[in-house]
Amino acid sequence: MPNSKYNALIMHLNDNVATAVDDLAAGADAKVKIENKNQTIELINDIRFGHKFALSDINKGEEIKKYGESIGVAITDIKQGEHVHVHNIDSIRGKGAVTKNEF
């Protein structure tokens, strides 16, 4: 989508992450759309289509908000523009012992 005015979406005004709708490169500016406003965030990592990045600095232990709701908790400090995924956030729900694969 080279001609789009935006390349990332926010689902709710309270969210602290946005979702990339194109493959975005580290160092580039993400153009984030929410309702009729656009915001620009400089990316720290490559963000692939469908993946999330932080809209502001998030402290370890802070909740990650998407759709205006909690989707988990930060397990490290996360910088604005940083990739937000399984390496730095964790579920609050559905936890027990970790399932290990046979291979």
Binding site: F49, H85, R93, G96, A97, V98, T99
Partner: peptide
């Protein structure tokens, strides 16, 4: 006694950008 992680979200979900069951 088991964890959802590994089953939900599935490996494919995670590859596609979904991080947690809540999301």
């Amino acid at each position: 006694g088991m964890d959802f992680r590994g089953a939900q979200p599935s490996p494919g979900n995670i590859q596609g950008g979904l991080s947690t069951i809540e999301e």
